[in-house]
């Protein structure tokens, strides 16, 4: 393996990157390691064309890193994410999937020290015969840390989404807060979702939960909008966009515009 296949980004300790960094991974690379130095703050938007790729995030003490993964090429792919969080560090990860012939995406998160927090969001807008399978292991190796995982699937056509999410809290990791939510909207009879949340908890002073909903758009909301003159197609599109609003609104404005437009374009294929 040549050095060029393994990318490495280091954000120096105590550096604050005010503007989002856009990282375009060259074709042929296989892995990328992002190290956020102690006390650093950065937003990294990763554009990746590679089909088999490993990401590794290493957050040092009190580092804050937001990582947005933008898939830029349709097709099959395998992505692996490994995150290690040190004391007081904050990791925010947002992945947006809008073109997935067959994607397998895994997260292996190790919360190593106290006081760190993780927010993980995965948004998928799929149609046709697109498939997304996600596997998550979030291991709270130290107590006093928090994690929040959010998965949203908007599925039309014969699209399929699978998600197996495991939260592991070993004995001794007291005061852990770990939550996982999954919300799936099925817009056709052929679309399917399989969600398997797993909580494995060995400590007794923790707050952990998981929730999963699968359903269709709110018929009352659709009628309310139609009664105001909005077509069913437009109302559906607005309600689907609303499902992703919270995550998209949290992005920096420039990224919100680009990714919001991309999501909107895909939603038109679902309606």
């Amino acid at each position: 393996m040549t050095a060029a296949k393994q990318m490495e980004i280091k954000i120096p300790a105590h550096r604050t990157e005010k503007a989002p960094m856009v990282l375009v991974l060259p074709a042929g690379s296989t892995s990328c390691k992002v190290t956020a130095g102690a006390g650093s703050r950065a937003i990294v938007c990763i554009r990746n064309v590679n089909r088999d790729f490993s990401f590794r995030f290493d957050l040092k003490k009190n580092a804050s890193l937001t990582c947005i993964l933008e898939q830029t090429r349709p097709g099959s792919a395998i992505y692996r994410h490994t995150c290690r969080l040190a004391t007081g560090s904050e990791m925010r990860s947002i992945a947006i999937f809008t073109q997935c012939t067959d994607i397998r995406n895994s997260y292996h998160i190790d919360i190593q020290e106290e006081g760190s927090s993780l927010s993980l969001s995965s948004l998928a807008v799929l149609t046709g015969r697109e498939k997304l399978a996600q596997n998550i292991l979030c291991r709270h190796n130290a107590g006093g840390a928090s994690s929040m995982q959010t998965f949203k699937h908007l599925l039309g056509g014969a699209a399929q989404a699978d998600m197996v999410g495991r939260i592991l809290v070993p004995a001794g990791s007291q005061k852990t807060e770990a939550y996982q939510q999954s919300r799936s909207i099925l817009l056709s009879e052929q679309a399917s979702v399989h969600v398997e949340p797993q909580l494995e908890i060995y400590a007794d002073d923790v707050k952990c939960s998981h929730g999963s909903t699968v359903g269709q758009l709110d018929k009352d909301a659709l009628f309310y909008m139609q009664q105001r003159g909005i077509s069913p197609e437009e109302a559906t599109r607005m309600l689907l966009e609303a499902e992703l609003r919270h995550e998209l609104d949290s992005l920096p404005p420039a990224l919100r515009r680009v990714l919001g437009a991309k999501v909107s374009r895909k939603l038109k294929h679902l309606v």
Binding site: M225, Q227, A242
Partner: peptide, 24 residues
Amino acid sequence: LGFQYPVEIPGVSIANFMKAAVAA
């Protein structure tokens, strides 16, 4: 129709909602 039980629509602002309705 002024609804007896107006529906909550999370994620859709009144401004955007009315923009679409007024335009139609």
